[in-house]
Design a protein around this nucleic acid. Sequence first.
DNA 1: AAGATTACCTGAAGGC
DNA 2: TGCCTTCAGGTAATCT
Length: 289
Amino acid sequence: MPELPEVETVARGLRGVLPGKSITGARIGKSDFIDDVAALERLLPGARISAVRRHGKFLLLDLESPSAEPRSLCLLIHLGMTGRLVVCPPDAPIAPHTHVFFALDDGSELRYTDIRRFGKMRLLVDGVNGANGGGDAVLAALGADPLEASEAEFAGRMRGRRARIKALLLDQRVLRGMGNIYTDESLWRARIHPMRLGANLSGEEMRRLYRAVRDVLAEAIRFRGSSVSDYVDSSGQPGWFQQRHRVYRRAGKKCFRCGGTIGRATVAGRSSYFCPRCQPAPRKRRRAK
DNA sequence: AAGATTACCTGAAGGC
DNA sequence: TGCCTTCAGGTAATCT
């Protein structure tokens, strides 16, 4: 579910309430999405939250430990498809599939709910995770933030790639934060068919795509993200950007730009929506005999 | 070895 | 009503 605009909205919400508060207790139910449950239960109580950050689709809670041993902690949270992170009073009704409860020293509670448990939670201790010193390798492997990258960097990361442009936009090692919704919306805005190969985009098309990605993400953040099924922000409120979608889940409806009929196809293993008139399909290469 | 497919988990929606 | 299949915004592992 959550892509960059949704995670950014959650991060901003948490940033308004969490920094300065301490975790007083950690209660964990189902835990197959947590790297090291014992570490969370042992190290988090007493820790004070100093900052909330976003890195691609990851949320990062920076914490200061009360003890001298591990000084700094960083709780890394990925919401997967159905993850929710909400701050509420401790007596608020518990949503089904709520698996983690962090009690906070002001009496409130930070809860993690995740129906499908595709999310991830792991604790980085003094910047390093686990026994083999894996560090924040997960974060280091991520590509450029689409809102921070220059046009040259954006284009450079796609250049020469024979993969479909849709697959490249979705690849977190190329760009961090894009998902299925914003990829389709961006390609529509740039008038580029999702099946085009990255290497075949002209300089002009690449420039349009760069602009489209930034405009779509920025606008989606202003609308507090898209609530298609499960997404809500840190206070439990839905986003509104789904009302501005131009192609996503609009198969059979009219294109807002040319009046053509929005189509749907599987590209890069994901269902993809596009206007076959404004986003011309790549010409099939004739098979050599 | 890059690119494509499959697996993971639960729930909602559609067909019969 | 109910049973069955398909699909869902995420990545990671496995193939070719």
